[in-house]
Amino acid sequence: MSRAKRSILSWLVLSPLIGITLLPFAVMISTSLKPHDEVLAYPPTWLPKRVAWENFVDMWDTVGFGQAAFNSVLIAVAATVLALVIAVPAAYAMSRLPMKGRGAYRQFLLVTQMLSPILLVLGLFRMAASIPLGEGTMADTRLGVIIVYAAYHLAFAVWMLASYFATIPADLEEAAWIDGASRGRAVLSVFLPLALPAIAVTGIVTFVASWNEFTVALTLLRDPSRLTLPLKVVNLVAGRYSVEWNQVMAATLLATLPVAVVFSLLQRYLVTGLTLGAVK
């Protein structure tokens, strides 16, 4: 089969799925650019008669987009850093150090990975509400959400990092010890640089998962100034007496684009990183 023929065939096979994949983006872009009166026009059209850039400006105010984006970034970054700080040593220990109960620890990780926070949401919520913090409790604080995210992404992070660390030859570190470096130094100067790509991939996945998370945030956060982007967007639709779809779509688009760009750029690394981590 020639390459041209194969290309046409491939695209033909993929086209339905590509269509469905792109549809939400098309809907987002189309609606986010429509002025208010055109959104509720019947029958609907794809192209706005007038491009309403003001939706983004209005949305910024009504949603409090800046504050919500800040919350999302803060929570996702902090959760990622916390998860990594705890997971990297654990993964190092798992892949390098002989220890008793490694098998049990692995099982433990697997089990925690199986537990989605939604199953424990009621308990999480009560836990947060029972821990005093400042004037109130851990419930309705960003810190609470950060800790929960970090805990639930931990298993995945350790798992992925450990499988990757296992592929880094131990000889290099050992060579460094012979050269007189302490174990800690060897890890810092030899091991970590090699492990960086894996840490980066794990970090990105954790970041995006935290960025997109909905249930825990929905349960723990309530103060409008602390809500994350997904909550803000869903709040615009649920329980309102009028839904400004053009603003909703503008918010969704703006919240999605940065992640989409990062994903497209890093897609190749993610594929290798994830398969390595998931299957090994």
Binding site: A129, S130, T137, A139, R222, N235, A238
Partner: peptide
């Protein structure tokens, strides 16, 4: 000020936390 939809939840948290 709390949204109606989250008022019950807020009361739940606050009451069980004593806050």
């Amino acid at each position: 000020v709390v949204n109606w939809s989250s008022l019950l939840q807020k009361l739940q948290t606050d009451i069980s936390g004593g806050t």
